[in-house]
Structure formats: C-alpha cells, structure tokens
Amino acid sequence: MATLNINGQSMDIGELDPSTPLLWVLRDELGLVGTKYGCGIAQCGACTVHLDGAPVRSCQIPVGTLENQQITTIEGLATADGTLNPVQQAWIEHDVPQCGYCQAGQIMSATALLSKNSNPSDAEIDASMSGNICRCATYIRIKAAIKTAAQTASGTAFYDATSQPETA
C-alpha cells in the first residue's frame, strides 16, 4: 500500500494507479483542494506544489514517482497553530487576490523562490514567477507582496517541511 509524505504527514493512497498525476491525488483522494487544476499541461502554474522544497507542476508528476520525497502544498505553509507564513501574510496585507484561484500556485512559487533567495531582484522575481498565470492579472501586487515577505522574513526559514498542516 503506497504512502506519500505530504506536509509532514504520512498519507495512505491505497492502490491508486501510479500514473495518476499528483494534482488529482491531492484533490480527489486526500481532500487537499487548495492545489488547483488550470490547464493540465504545465502552462499555468495553478497546481504548483513543492517537492523537497522545489516548485513543481503537480499536474505533470505521476504519483508513483514520489515515494521518499517531501511534498508541501498550500495547506502545509502555515504552522500547526495557524500562524501564517510571511508570504501568506504579505498576500493579505497587499490584498493580492482578485478571484483568488491561481493564488495558491503563486504563493507556492513565491515561497520556493524566497527559501533559496532571500532578497530577489525584480528580474529574479519575474523569472521565478513567470510560470504562473494570473487571469485577473494581479502581478503588480504579487511582486509587491513578495518584496514585503522578503523583508519580513529576512534570515528566517520560510516553512518547515516537516511541520504539521493547519488542517489535514
């Protein structure tokens, strides 16, 4: 019986077809619907999650390839007591979301960027975020929020991959 390590928890996925994309396992089997379906071909970034801290498009990752890897989703960014990650806080402070549908993917790309580059330039932000489409075009506020989060968090870890999710 296969298990995945998601947001620091071991989750049983039963006898699922190993070719099933991680996106649909998260959404349909595990109830982690914060990760979104947008295009199914890695064009939009709405399904972005972290694999061992690196951003990936979960619509392209067969679930059978994921044993022994740490998966982090939007539900795993806040700490167990509900304290938001600096990126999440900055998103609220800047009132980034319009429809909000892409924002989980945007936040996962932004946290991955800041965890390896605590003070990114505009060009580095553009390069890291250009895989994520926002149909409402909230890019101006996304960029501003990333800069705020970088300041807030300078020197601190963005998230602990082994922490418990706020809710499972």
């Binding site: 619907v33 379906y37 998103w91 924002q103 989980a104 706020e166």
Partner: peptide, 21 residues
C-alpha cells in the same frame, strides 16, 4: 480593505465550485 476571503484563499480552503465535495 483587504478581501474578506483572503485568509481562506492563502491557506487553500475549499471555496470554489471545483473544490466542492
């Protein structure tokens, strides 16, 4: 004013049609 759903949006709560279960 920041949007009233923003906290739920940035924590991935099931708000959308596609999230219904």
């Amino acid at each position: 004013y920041s949007g009233v759903d923003n906290h739920e949006l940035v924590t991935g709560k099931p708000l959308f049609g596609i999230d219904q279960n």
